[in-house]
Amino acid sequence: MNFLAEKLGVSLETFKLTVAVFLLILGITAFYSFSGISTLVRVIGLLVFVGGAAAIVFQTELGRLLWQFVVDSRIEVRKVVWPSRQETLQTTLVVIAMVLVVGIVLWLFDLILMAILRFLTG
């Protein structure tokens, strides 16, 4: 009995995801098929199809896991200590200075190698 319930649950999940993908494809096809209609109306229709597909996906286990991931990600972003404006400016200036220094060193290295190559090849 348990095996049958699990199999039915998996097939229902697959069916829901298939219907959601079908709705997305149908919405995109309708958006481009009705090019004579106002763009605003077509976008609203596309958003209705995407919303319907999202509602179906969030009824599945995969959708619930995805939503939990989004919630957990937002919680983690709130924990981040963002740098101040002064720290960001100082770090940016250090990066720019180092890029310039490395660029000049590589340019000088290239000049030296070219001079050596010209000397060797005549």
Rank of each mutant, 00 (worst) to 15 (best):
V101G: 12
V48P: 01
L106N: 08
T29D: 04
R78A: 14
S11H: 00
N2F: 12
R118V: 00
L108E: 15
A115L: 07
T39K: 11
A55V: 03
V21G: 00
T121L: 11
D110N: 13
E87A: 08
T29V: 08
F3Q: 15
P83M: 04
N2R: 11
A53D: 09
Q68E: 15
A20L: 03
I112R: 15
I96V: 14
R85P: 09
L93G: 05
L12R: 08
T60Q: 01
I28N: 00
L4C: 04
M114S: 13
L12A: 14
Q59R: 13
L93P: 00
G27M: 03
L24M: 05
I116V: 14
L100F: 10
F22G: 05
Q90R: 15
A115N: 01
F58V: 07
F119V: 02
V77I: 11
G36V: 13
D72M: 08
F22C: 05
M98S: 15
S84R: 14
P83Q: 05
V21P: 00
I75W: 06
E61K: 13
T60V: 04
M114H: 15
L100E: 11
V10E: 05
R85L: 02
A30L: 15
A54M: 05
L4K: 07
F49Q: 12
L4G: 00
F58I: 09
S35K: 13
S11C: 06
I25A: 05
R85D: 13
V57G: 09
L120V: 11
N2S: 12
R118E: 04
I56R: 01
V81P: 01
T121A: 14
I44W: 06
S38V: 00
S33I: 02
E13G: 10
S33G: 07
T39Y: 08
L46M: 06
G27K: 05
F3C: 08
V101N: 10
L66Y: 06
L40Q: 15
F31C: 03
M1Q: 14
F69E: 04
F49W: 11
